[in-house]
Amino acid sequence: MSAIDWITQVLEVVAAVAAAPAFLGWLNQCRAWLQNRRAPSLWLPYRNLRKLFHKEAVIAEGASPLFRIAPYVVFGTMVLAAGIIPSMGTRLPLVGSADAIALVGLFAAARMFMTLAAMDVGTAFGTLGARREMMVGFLAEPALLMVIFVASQISSSTALPVITDHLASGRLGLSPGLAFSAVAFILVLLAENARIPVDNPATHLELTMIHEAMVLEYSARHLALMEWAAQLKLFNYVCIGFALFLPWGVATGHIGPMGLAVAIPALAIKLAVAGAGLALIETLSAKMRVMRIPEFLGTAFLFAVLGLLVHVLLGT
C-alpha cells in the first residue's frame, strides 16, 4: 500500500460525504425541471444541514441512550460504506476489509439501528415507520444480495473491487444475467432510498411515509446526521450500481494521478446522468399503496433470482 492509495482512499470517502447532498440537490433540480416547476438551488441540502446543525436539540422524555447513539452509528456506517465501494479506484486499502456481503450487512446494521431508534420513544408514527421499513428491508436486502451474486458468479469473487476489475476489462455486452439484475437493482435502489413509487420524500402524510415516520422525533444535529446519512445512502447505492453495471472510468490497478484525473470526471458525469435518470423514473411513476410494496420488491427479488438462473443456464 503506497501513500497515494491511502490518499485516494481518504479522498474517496471525503468526496462521497461532501458530494452526497449535492447529488440529492441535482436530483431534485432535474425532477423540478421535468415537472415544469422552478428548480430549487443545488445547494439547498447543504443549507438545510447547516441550519439543523445550528439549532437546539430536543430529545423526547422517554428516549433511551440508544436513541442518541443511533444517528452516529447510522452516519458512521454509511461513511464506511462509501470507503468500501470502489467508486474511484479498485486498489484501495479499505476495500479488502469487507466484501459485498459484508457491505450489505453494513447497510442492514444501519437499518436495524434506525428502526430500533424509531421504536424507542414509543410513538404511533415511529413504530409504524419501523415496521414498514423492515417490511421494505426484508425483501430489498435479499434482492440486493442476489444482484451482487450474479456479478460475483461472473467474476468468481464477492469482493467488489475484483468484480469491478473483471467487468471493466473485456466484456462489453451486458451479460444476460446482468440484464435481469440491473432491473432488479434499480427497483431495490428506489425502495431502499425511499424514492417515489415506494415512499414520497416530500410529504408527511401518514398513509404514505416510511423514512420520514422513523425520524420524526429527531431534531437539530441528530436529524442533520440522519438526513445526511440518507443522502449518503442514496449516493452509495448509485455507486454500487456503477461498480456492478457501469464500471468504466474506475481506475483499475494501482492508482496514480493520471488514474484519478480520469476517475473523478468519469464519476461526476455518471452521477449527473444517473441523477437525471432517477428523476425521470420518479416523474413517470406514481406513488404505490403500501401493501403494493411487497409485490414491487418481490418482483425485484424474483428478477434477481432469475438473473442468477439465466446465468447458470446460459453458462453451461
Binding site: 466484456r171 462489453l172 455486452g173 451486458l174 451479460s175 444476460p176 444475467g177 440484464a179 435481469f180 432491473v183 424474483l302 428478477f303 432469475l306 439465466v310 446460459l314
Partner: peptide
Amino acid sequence: QQLLDTCAALLLLLSF
C-alpha cells in the same frame, strides 16, 4: 454471440 445472448435475456425479461 454476447449481443445475441443479451437479446435472448431481454426477450425473457420482457416476458416477465
